[in-house]
Design a protein around this nucleic acid. Structure first.
Lengths: 223, 223
DNA sequence: AATAATTGTTAGATAACTCTAACTTAGGAG
DNA sequence: CTCCTAAGTTAGAGTTATCTAACAATTATT
């Protein structure tokens, strides 16, 4: 099942609709939101939505909100896959800082060659996350995992689950064992102390404790 | 001195004009040649030539042949630089065969980011030649070296100069020393024996000798 | 040198993507 | 429940890159 070769522009619309749709439960988005994201004007979006509807990539009725169809979502996810793999390349191999990679990846994501992406993925060692912690979809368009961040970036009141560590020194791992934190442990962030960046967290049943910024910077979690 | 951001298409025309112009002493080319190369029709080329003339990238008069201006040549060379660096990446790092790299590099060469290319070049170890033996221009647009090939691909009657070896085993290097062939040695190909691919060559003053296919496959030359 | 053949250009049209200005619809405030 | 505002759409036009068909210039041939 070959995708029928979309234009650079169409790809960008699908990607934008995808990310905007992810933000609410009904998985839809509004015309002006898309216009803002793509940096165009609403009429341009209207036109494109008509076109994408004809191609069965979005489901859409005039004056209503847009949703991706299954096919449209598949396309969007594959573009995101390419984008994130290129980000890993730019960061890991070329040494770009994580906040410098986006703009260039935005261009690279439109290069057409399945073979290229498969080989790039292999070359990078089949990474699961990009430099921002966002998960990389698989070649068949599966995107299971949630975004991964460091504990120190979780908002107050939210609960997350430990998926790994950044620092894998013996000292740190021993400390984790001591306070009984491992892969899968659920952590709720009770309070953030702005002064030193330390956190008050709760593990399981009301077991409250305080951890330093250094600690929370090195624990990888999923929300 | 920033180049004023050319379109994907304009870049392709400049590159085409560059390669076609390299093939004769007057460094110019004809409209239909460009049309064939770009896979468009002559009228399209005429239009584009008018546009590129206005931008001072080509010098051109109606019904005459086209030449690149200094600025145009500079742009073309920088695109070729990008193209060849990407080819090295695809071949050396991703393991594409040397005849598979062109198509994808054709897309990658239009990615806009000087920083990207500088870092890519460094990552690749500042290569001097692409997988086809074509020289890679430097960041300031200098393209000194000539194409490099293996001795076995030099045509009968032509003279070339040794620039390196592919095989650097002691045995091979000893053999080279014995027959007094080193960097800079001029070799004229007198005859090619189709049966086993061996060559009759002459070094300096009429010193004729015969070398095997294995030998000539491992000597890198410039014509 | 005159003319035929080749090569190149203009004219007019089309497709993709964009815009501004004017109009329409949907949904919330009174 | 009406009416207004915000959101969305049509209409009409511009840009870039392309085409075919018709015309013009150059070059090659006799």
């Amino acid at each position: 099942m070959k995708a029928p070769q979309l234009s650079y522009t169409e790809e960008n619309y699908l990607k934008a609709i995808y990310s905007l749709s992810e933000r609410n439960e009904s998985f839809d988005t509004a015309t002006t939101e898309i216009a803002d994201r793509i940096k165009t004007k609403p009429p341009t979006v209207s036109d494109m939505l008509r076109k994408l509807t004809e191609k069965k990539l979005v489901s859409y009725e005039k004056y209503k909100r847009v949703q991706l169809t299954k096919a449209g979502r598949q396309v969007a996810i594959l573009i995101i896959r390419k984008h994130r793999l290129w980000e890993v390349f730019l960061h890991d191999k070329l040494g770009f800082a994580w906040d410098e990679v986006h703009e260039v990846a935005e261009q690279l994501e439109h290069i057409q060659s399945e073979e290229l992406i498969l080989r790039l993925e292999k070359f990078l060692g089949f990474p699961k996350y990009d430099p921002h912690g966002d998960p990389i979809p698989s070649a068949n368009g599966e995107l299971s995992q949630a975004k991964r961040t460091i504990l120190s970036e979780v908002e107050e009141g939210k609960t997350c689950q430990v998926v790994g560590v950044k620092d894998s020194s013996t000292l740190f791992l021993q400390y984790l064992q001591q306070i009984n934190v491992g892969i899968g442990t659920r952590i709720k962030v009770i309070d953030k102390i702005p002064f030193d960046g330390s956190l008050k967290i709760s593990l399981r049943k009301n077991e409250e404790l305080s951890v330093s910024k250094k600690f929370s910077d090195n624990v990888l979690v999923t929300c």
